[in-house]
Design a binder for these strands. Structure first.
Lengths: 126, 126
DNA sequence: TTTTGTACCATTACACCACACGGTACAAGT
DNA sequence: ACTTGTACCGTGTGGTGTAATGGTACAAAA
């Protein structure tokens, strides 16, 4: 596991982590079932805040790339390689893009779309 | 036409204008075809910037509540009363709400939705 | 000439959010 | 005791969008 963090990079630190771990899985540098460094450990090695590493791990687990087994540590998910290629971002963009295009075609101002969006995102109960 | 602008109100000035003009139409205080003050004139009377009034007029015309006939001035739209009740906002909220709910159910973070949304809104070519 | 709506340049203030950071605390396992 | 992931409180910075302001300019009609 050779992870490099570039503070100068415009990409967020947690995103760099996610990206590099996914890459390591895809290039067979880590095999499924293998243990990952603990959050605090990795944060210490990379001189990052533990919250930053925790955020990366949380996202990776949501994508089923890693598996956190509570007090036993974190491991590479059995189906990690498959789930790495599934890009959640594209489906998000597609869904939103459709809605936005439809609204714009209906004559709705970008500003109005932003306002409505902001209101919706603040209400937890949709 | 008695329009009152409250600077202390949290509602944007242009929104107050839109609201009050729509209200005047609904309450038959102005009839279809009647002329409205010019942008500069109204801005002067209310001590607002002409751009602020222009923005309100632009929105009202998009909703077909008023009609701008170029150099002849601005008038109340023939179907103003009907178009006043049509709330564009509700259809916007419904459309967006659907998309957001779907994404959230798919495990997408609110933060990620916001990022994707922001990126889409900045790219003119969708 | 003056007025009409409109378009472009710009600045200011304000608010929200993402990101990263710090500290503290917890239950459950080694 | 120590570590695990996780959750809560918080702070600060930078980016970005809205809202409102100002100035200048245009073509077309009165």
């Amino acid at each position: 596991m050779d992870i490099t963090i570039d503070i100068e990079d415009s990409a967020p630190l947690f995103a760099q982590l996610v990206e590099q771990i996914k890459e390591a899985v895809l290039k067979d540098k880590i095999s499924p079932g293998a243990p990952l460094p603990s959050i605090r450990q990795l944060a210490n090695d990379l001189r990052l805040n533990s919250k930053t590493v925790a955020k990366a791990y949380r996202l990776l687990e949501r994508d089923s790339v890693i598996q956190t087994r509570g007090y036993r540590g974190t491991f590479i998910h059995p189906d990690a390689k498959i789930n790495c290629t599934v890009d959640l971002g594209e489906w998000v963009i597609a869904k939103l893009s459709d809605a936005i295009s439809e609204l714009r075609d209906g004559g709705v101002t970008d500003s109005e779309i932003r306002i409505a969006f902001g209101n919706l995102m603040n209400k937890r109960t949709i």
